[in-house]
Design a protein around this nucleic acid. Sequence first.
RNA 1: GCGCCCGUAGCUCAGCUGGAUAGAGCAUCAGACUACGAAUCUGAGGGCCGGAGGUUCGAAUCCUUCCGGGCGCGCCA
Length: 582
Amino acid sequence: MNIFKAFENDIRAILASLAEAGSIPAGLDLSRVTVEPPRDPAHGDLSTNAAMVLAKPAKMAPRALAQMLVDRLTARGDVVSADIAGPGFVNLRLTPAVWQERVRDILAAGTAYGDSDAGGGHAVNVEYVSANPTGPLHAAHGRGAVFGDALASLLKKAGFKVTREYYINDAGAQVQVLGRSTYLRYREALGEDIGEIPAGLYPGAYLKDVGQALAARDGDKWVGTDESVWLPVCRDFAISMIMDWIREDLGLLGVSMDVYTSERAMVESGAVGAALQALEDQGLIYVGVLEPPKGKKPDDWEPRPQTLFRSTDFGDDVDRPLKKSDGTNTYFANDIAYHYDKFRRGSPTLIDVLGADHGGYVKRMQAATTAVTAKQGSLDVKICQLVHLLQNGEPVKMSKRAGTFVTLRDVIESVGANVVRFIMLTRRNDQTLEFDYAKVTEQSKDNPVFYVQYAHARCKSVLRKAAEDGRDISVAALAKADLSRLEAPEEMEIIRRMATWPRLVEAAAEAHEPHRVAFFLYDLASDFHALWNKGKDDATMRFLIDGDEGISVARLALVHAVATVIASGLQVMGVEPVEEMR
RNA sequence: GCGCCCGUAGCUCAGCUGGAUAGAGCAUCAGACUACGAAUCUGAGGGCCGGAGGUUCGAAUCCUUCCGGGCGCGCCA
């Protein structure tokens, strides 16, 4: 149960009944009315801005409006006090029981605590990773993978129907390059001296494996044949093998997609023509000449008529080409068809998780999505900024040109999938992220992964100790606890924190910001570590009190709830909670 | 030149879609273990929220304009 949502609904109901009674004008817009935990706990448990938001449209003094709310709210049994504060906030203090009972909610729900129906089963398609199938995933891909996956989990928890999707760019010029590069490695595998890899082909050593696998499968069958014969073979073989690697790497990270969509298959199905026709029918395609780009001008620039999409009608800066000079479709044209395809498969809400170098692509794709779906679909693009890999503060050297880069697999193997996933979510997506091998495996509070896991392990440690003492720590037994015994300020604080979890799930899902989960867990862990240490100073604050089973059971229920909420949050992040630290 | 993103404590970052006195961690200083794991905790100092205007009951948050950093800018994907 979401306390904040519940009171928000109740306050709306009170306002409606006040309007009915003629105390306030009818038909006020209540959409800006919110109920939040006040930043300063001294102000109370809940706070609403209703009086301030409605004062102007109601043509009433904020405090007069607030007083009416106060009168109604104080009449409730679960409200201890309601006060007007500051410019017109109404602050509520609830009975301890309202909070204490949340512990029972948590025990009953398990890690499903925080699940919401806010999404109403609305379909959302989250496309992420979508790395080109020309090489193994590198470290930076990991961020998009983790972000997209956590966002998908978060949306699912918030009640959306989520599709996780990977778009395989297997249709463009780069997979032709891949095919040629593979052919060289194939001949090399058969014993030929291929010398230096020519400029323009992929130099990466990983293609040796592909060449050898092809040679092992087909022998010298393709040597001496025409390029029109071997190119498709080499290309498709390489794509297939590399996609297998990518799937394996994602598997190591705990990422599994619902759908892999092939660009080439989509193109061959005629979907691009259909999508362009949809734009044509709306008069959004024309032939024109673009202005040259300002500033840095390409050497071979010359004005030339192109087939253009009127993306400026939808907020873009210039109209965008759909056809190359040889008459074939641009990547953008294919992408329009792809987004149209996702829409037609049943997701009006689309999310693309892209890398930092795609920032300039956002406006046109949003414009195209709006246009091609006749404004029925919407696209949110989440750009993940760069990851700086560090080793003890020193940048890890990488060169794409030389074909040397840190693979995602290397990173996972050196620090573990749980660490990669957690750390990648400790920054907002549009903030660059430093990933220091030394720091992320450090066992200190400076390392949020450790800090949160340690809190969970401590919970489990208490429960183990209780079980060793012969206590029944089953959920059924703990659920019978007399929770009114949890009256210490530190205990109430941690309960209030856990009560905000359902609210946080909804807010983070709506904002498409999974990093908020990581910060919430850090705060919750901090509350728990503080409570733990309280027992050092004050023996009556220990979890297990000999001779007082009532409070021991209540506190065990609390500890179990904390472990459950941490596990619930980690589940969204795709991180496994640990039972004990090693 | 244009577009997008970022600018918050010495450092690394949050800030709940406009709320009350702007918060954490690290670093600095001062404290707490005969333990359900001190790998933790408690406290102190530290800020013109890049600058300047504007919008309103109220701005780190929205608008305008500068400054600084990152990414991108027809026929690549």
